[in-house]
Simulated scan of single mutants.
Amino acid sequence: MTGQQAVLAAAAQQPTWSDPVALAAVTAELAIRPPLVMADECQALTARLAMVAHGWGMVIQGGDCAETFDAVRYDNVAGTVGALRQLAGQVAAASGREPVVIGRMAGQFAKPRSRPVEQIGGRELPVYRGDAVNDRTFTAAARVHDPSRMLVAYQASANVLAYARRAAGGGFFVSHEGLLLDYELPLTRPAGDGHFAASGHMLWIGERTRDPRSAHVIYAAGIRNPIGLKVGPSTTPEQLMEVVRVLDPERIPGRLTLISRMGADRVDAVLPALVAAVRAGGHPVVWLCDPMHGNTVTAPSGHKTRHVDRIVAEIKAFFMVHRAIGTHPGGVHLELTGRMVTECVDDRNVMPVDVPRCFESACDPRLNPAQVHRVGELLATLL
């Protein structure tokens, strides 16, 4: 067994591909495709993040929960970029510094799931794992794990990246969860005396795959891109430091971003010990607040939703913890869109009964532009 095969064999949250021969052909094709991003761009992002790690400026990271192939259009991408730039403008006006803007896009086509199957009307099928793996349509044929979809994801990512750069006028970074290792490994390329993931400027490791001995952490430790790590409320300081030491053994500023996702009611109880442990360990990380994932509830319609009041509360609590300890609150990680969806509740324009009226997300609820503006108002006040 090769080293690459050993990594894949130990990986969690991976598809059960329908055709091993087709999978081999797809990964061979990905290995010769042009890189989506370049090593010097990844290094430039690390340098920008290093400034934030040292207490200068902020990071605005955001985009779709799960990108879909049918949404890869210039208007959609430009709308998301516009929402991010709006938020960045509010932060810049309040702080006097341009934030680092990172799109959650051009690669967010695979999703971890809590269960391998789902049931509708008494019928059970494999769960939807993102457009890079299968289709949302609830049929047996659509839910097959089809490796050819990774080639579609590659081209869709290339298109999104081109649209984002055009909409932003350059200087725009992209990121995604580095979940699908059959996609990431063939797109890993040599650079200098190491390797980098050519699929995106920044990859993050999710809550379900962050064990220090996991295949995802082993892979991330071997690339030179800046790496993100989701940190949930069940994380202990000892667990966090174990994985931090694996991912950032040389204590490089900007190398590691820790993305706190606690839930508004748990920040004060959990986050201080984690922040203190990382500071005591001497790791110059960037701390971001993901106020989305810990605040998901169910609307009367059965849709997932989030209340903007809880999102705002978690951001406030995140800032207060860092200020009490004397560390730098580095920014936010949001699921958002430029479309006027009704996926999150805000007690102004979107009530719980309104959620299904315009719920377009393939997975979790996103903030619409008006709600993004409200988050921007909060950040401006905190700054």
Rank of each mutant, 00 (worst) to 15 (best):
P15L: 08
A28D: 15
S18F: 05
P15F: 05
A50G: 15
A28C: 07
A50K: 06
A39E: 04
T27P: 06
D40G: 00
E29D: 11
M51W: 07
T16M: 07
R33P: 00
T16E: 11
T16K: 14
M38S: 13
L49G: 01
I32M: 06
L23D: 02
L49N: 01
A47K: 12
A39F: 01
L30S: 03
V37Y: 06
V26W: 00
A9Y: 05
A39D: 10
A50C: 07
A44C: 04
A44T: 09
P34V: 06
A11E: 13
A22V: 09
V52E: 06
L23A: 03
A24R: 11
I32S: 10
A11C: 13
I32F: 02
A47H: 12
T27I: 12
C42P: 00
V26A: 10
D40A: 07
A25M: 10
A12D: 14
Q43K: 07
P34M: 09
R33K: 12
T27F: 03
E41C: 06
A25E: 11
A9E: 14
A44D: 10
M51R: 15
A12L: 15
W17Y: 07
S18G: 06
L36V: 07
P20V: 11
A44I: 00
A22Y: 03
E41M: 07
L49D: 05
P20S: 11
L30K: 00
V26I: 09
D40I: 00
A10G: 12
A11I: 12
V21S: 13
P15H: 01
D19Q: 03
M51E: 15
A28N: 08
A12E: 11
A25W: 00
L45I: 12
A47W: 08
E41W: 00
A50I: 04
R48Y: 03
A47S: 13
D19S: 07
A44L: 01
T27E: 06
S18W: 04
A24C: 05
W17P: 04
A44S: 14
E41V: 01
A24F: 06
A44W: 00
T46N: 11
L36K: 00
L45M: 13
A9K: 14
A50V: 05
V26Q: 03
Q43N: 10
A11Y: 11
A31G: 10
P15T: 09
